[in-house]
Amino acid sequence: MGLLLRWACAFLLLALTYNPTQWNYIRWSMNNYQQEQPLAVLLGLLLLIWYIIYLRATLRSIGGFGMFLVLSVVGALVWVLYDWNMLSLDNPDIVTWIAILALSIVLGIGLGWSIVRRMLTGQVDMDNVDH
């Protein structure tokens, strides 16, 4: 459940920032920046902090190469589904949702890598803490 929750939070972060609907921060802030400038800045900063936390945790757990590998596997899966005519990429909205899903999988795996590693190997990750 922990891994699924971490992925869902990553998906929510990306979808709140941008998605093909009208319900996203980018579109809202572009349309309301003049009237709601303080709120737009506050929400933008909160999203930025959320991104920094997620990206830093992901980079620390799987690194840039690990992020590349996960994204490559997801991209290859999309390619296979497209090649087998199980997925159509004609609709730009679908492509955007696929990109959000792919990036959220990268962040979700990065955030939950300790859980995956513990399940696979029985080893526990721990930060070095000096007392």
Rank of each mutant, 00 (worst) to 15 (best):
G2M: 09
G2W: 06
L4A: 15
L5Q: 12
R6H: 09
R6E: 10
R6Q: 13
W7Q: 07
A8T: 04
A8I: 08
A8E: 03
A10M: 03
A10L: 03
F11I: 06
L12G: 13
L14M: 13
L14A: 10
A15W: 14
L16M: 14
Y18N: 02
Y18W: 02
N19S: 03
W23A: 11
N24C: 14
N24P: 06
Y25T: 04
I26E: 04
W28E: 06
S29I: 00
S29Y: 02
S29P: 04
S29H: 05
S29G: 07
M30H: 11
M30K: 13
M30R: 13
N31Q: 13
Q34C: 06
Q34P: 03
Q35G: 09
Q35P: 04
Q35A: 15
E36R: 14
P38E: 08
P38G: 02
L39D: 07
A40F: 01
L42N: 06
L42W: 13
L43N: 10
G44S: 02
L45I: 08
L45S: 13
L46I: 11
L46M: 15
L46N: 10
L47K: 11
L48W: 13
I49N: 06
W50T: 08
W50E: 04
Y51W: 15
Y51T: 04
I52K: 07
I52L: 10
I53A: 08
I53T: 05
I53L: 11
Y54D: 05
L55T: 05
L55D: 03
A57H: 07
T58V: 02
T58S: 03
L59A: 07
R60N: 12
S61E: 00
S61K: 05
I62V: 04
G64C: 06
G66E: 00
G66F: 00
G66P: 00
M67G: 04
F68R: 00
L69I: 15
V70Q: 00
V70D: 00
L71P: 02
L71I: 06
L71K: 08
G75E: 05
A76Y: 00
A76P: 01
L77Y: 08
V78H: 14
W79T: 08
W79Y: 11
Y82G: 01
Y82S: 04
D83C: 05
D83S: 15
L87K: 03
L87Q: 02
D90S: 15
D90K: 15
N91H: 12
N91E: 11
P92F: 03
D93R: 14
D93K: 13
D93T: 08
D93F: 15
I94L: 14
V95W: 14
T96M: 13
W97C: 03
W97Y: 15
A99L: 10
I100K: 02
A102I: 04
A102C: 05
A102L: 05
A102F: 01
L103R: 03
I105Y: 04
V106C: 01
V106N: 01
V106I: 06
L107A: 03
I109V: 15
I109F: 01
G110W: 01
G110Q: 01
G110H: 01
G110R: 01
L111S: 11
L111P: 03
L111M: 12
G112W: 00
S114Y: 02
S114Q: 13
I115Y: 09
R118H: 12
G122N: 04
Q123W: 08
Q123F: 09
V124K: 09
M126G: 09
D127V: 08
D127N: 10
N128H: 10
N128A: 13
N128P: 05
V129M: 12
V129F: 14
D130R: 12
D130Y: 14
H131W: 09
H131G: 08
